[in-house]
Design a binder for these strands. Structure first.
Lengths: 111, 111
DNA sequence: CTTTCGATTCTACATTTGTAGGATTGTTGA
DNA sequence: TCAACAATCCTACAAATGTAGAATCGAAAG
């Protein structure tokens, strides 16, 4: 994952409302959710959901597809995985063992 | 890791200058770096480094200790590890296998 | 004690971000 | 075709963020 995208992704995750939206989408799975549903569940005005969804899309964390009248938004799990790996590389760089806690089943195999 | 801290940490990582500083500190290891050294290496004015370091500290990602005239800043690897785990939990929640790519040696043992 | 030097704080400013009501667009079912 | 409905766009505004020079603070060396 490129730094540019990682910066955008971190920015996207650094906002309460957006994190809440992302979590709803993670739980919803590949099926995704319509923005009206998101607005209801997150208790946020529709225009606001649009604003934040756009941000999540710009960051490459969320994809959309039309389904009849609704547009369904879903997490790009590939991108989320890429972000985890990006973070781990920064975390591990020359310091594996300092940051990774193998006992808790979080492993970094890079380098 | 609490959501509050994770939000702050993501925010801290979402800024180019801060990410650069964090990487310098990751490479430097537990020993840490003085802010003057950071300013030189990152090519950023000293006041700016102070500003961003404060942000990284507030996010709990960086710790400091005095060493003679200088103050040495170092990464809190524990916190960085916690952030990776936080991200994985969001990423995995009910969807293990969709997001985690075991072949590339990134594993999530939660749940 | 005083000078030096590393680091922060102050200040001012431009830019970006977040919020939300209302208007608009566009798809679908009647 | 047209009424309904979902979602975005427009707008205005408040708040937070990022930048950097200048002033200040504080520890340590002499």
């Amino acid at each position: 994952m490129e730094e540019r995208q990682a910066l955008a992704a971190f920015g996207a995750l650094s906002q309460e409302t957006r994190l809440r939206i992302l979590r709803l989408l993670v739980v919803a799975g590949p099926e995704g959710l319509a923005s009206g549903v998101i607005a209801d569940q997150a208790e946020v005005p529709a225009s606001n959901v649009s604003f934040h969804i756009k941000e999540l899309e710009r960051a490459g964390l969320v994809a959309s597809r039309r389904e009849s009248r609704s547009i369904l938004y879903s997490v790009d799990f590939e991108a989320l995985n890429g972000l985890v790996r990006f973070l781990m590389e920064d975390c591990c760089a020359g310091q594996i063992g300092l940051c990774v806690d193998v006992d808790r089943a979080v492993m970094c195999g890079n380098t």
